[in-house]
Each structure stands twice: as C-alpha cells, then as structure tokens.
Amino acid sequence: MIPAGFEYHRPADLASAVGILRAHGDEARVVAGGHSLIPMMKLRMAELGHLIDLQAIGELKGIEIDEGRVTLGAMTTQHELIAHEGLARAIPLLREAALQIADPQVRYMGTVGGNVANGDPGNDMPGLMQCLDARFELYGAEGTRQVAAREFYEAAYFTARADDEILTRILLPIPPAGTGYAYAKQKRKIGDYATAAAAVLIGEGLSSVAMTNLSDTPVWSEEAGTALAGGDIEGCVEAMLAAIDPQEDMRGPIAFKRHVAAVILRRAIDSALSRRA
C-alpha cells in the first residue's frame, strides 16, 4: 500500500500546470483532493512519474451564482458545495446528492472537479451533472473549450478530456423555480459507492433523469426524460432499464441491480414529484 516514487509539482497557475502536463505526457497526472487517485497509486494501479497538485491554483476555486447560471470552480470541495446556502437554494439537488457521497472526511478533501473528471462509473457527480445538463470547461495548450456533461463520458476512466487538458469550471443552468428534484441512492454503508443511484428533475419544460454505477459510464436517457415529462413513470423506468448495463460485483448480481435500479428510480421520481411546486 505504498505508491511507487514520483515527482511532486505544485504550480500556482493554470498555464504552468498545463506546461508540466505537456512536458511529461502520460507520465504526469493532476491531483485534486486525491481521494480517488491516491488509493489507485497506493495499489500501484496508477503509476506515474509526476504528480501535479492543483491546490495552489486560486483560479480553480469558488462558487458563483449569476442570473440563471451557477459556476463551480473545479477545486471546490464537496464540503464547500454542501455548506453553500445560496447554492442550496439555486440547485438543491446538488446538496442532496453531495450529502450522499462518502463521508465528511472524504468530502473535506474530494473536489467536484476530481469527481467529474475521474471517469469512474461509481462517482455520483457525473450522472448528476448529466441530469442538470452541466457543461465542463477544459483548459489546454490550445485554449479553452466546453464539453456538455452528456457528451463527456466515453467509457470507464475514458472521457472527452485530452491528457493535457485541465478541467477548470463546471457551468450549470439553474432549473426554473418549482422544479421537483431528488437524488436517491442505495448503498451498502456510509462511504460506499452506489448499488444504484438516480438523479431526477421534473419541472416546466424540463424533465431529466440520470443514473449512476449501472454501466461503464453514467446513464442519461433522453427517452426516459421525455416519458417522465409526459407523466409516464413506468415508460421512464422502462427506458432507463433499456439504457443501463450493470455488471455483477460484490454488491450483487445483474438481476438484483436491475431490480434495484427500477425501485430507486421510482422512489426518486416520487420524491421529485412531491417537491414539485
């Protein structure tokens, strides 16, 4: 449980960070809160020569709420996200989901940027971001570009982010007032990844459903959202079941996961409907 040796870098600005990334190619990796990456390094499943710590880069921090839009700096910790009252009013779904991630100790360190950039199907934020129709801002040598969360995930640990790009900000549209929301997650214990989790929004002209840890990427289903918008809950569940592709693990066999996925989704929908104004 001891990582192989590596060089540690702590740049103070984005340009230097990208410079170091480019200089070392796939030998280098950025570290945010370290709560996904460092365990992998300790298991020697991730071996890298250069670790670039993003903690000192001020521009990656901060939560901004403007007209109709929230911007989260990539280095915002899950704890900061939970503690922010304005954010909880603007997009209450974020706090509800973040509170179901890991435990307080992990949330003091784990960042929202690390959670979405990681590409682990177990992470809760990617599905959540797809449900909310977030956009990720990436900064690289060629400048800045944006990718929709719904187009970001390619396979487990593979995303649209190039190796030498850094995720800087997450841009979120604020759902209209009165939108019903819910994040429901079944897990074995505090600190566990989801057996199945569902993010649901139901509102005026906006119904969106995404699920977590039921495929090698988060699953956002347009059909499920459309069915839900039309009040067809079972149609929504069916569309989602058609979209997921869970694998057997210690949480249980596939049939169980599919069953639970449907139950959790229905519960999230019920809860979202009950909150809809």
Binding site: Q186, R188, T195, R251, G252, P253, A255, F256, H259, V260
Partner: peptide, 16 residues
C-alpha cells in the same frame, strides 16, 4: 444477509 441476498430471498419466494 446483505442487500442482494435478502432481495434474492424475496425474489425466490415470488414477492416481487
């Protein structure tokens, strides 16, 4: 008796 094994009991007994 973790979640899936309890679920399996119910499944096998036709409770779903």
């Amino acid at each position: 008796h973790d979640h899936w094994r309890i679920w399996k009991i119910a499944e096998d007994l036709g409770l779903h």
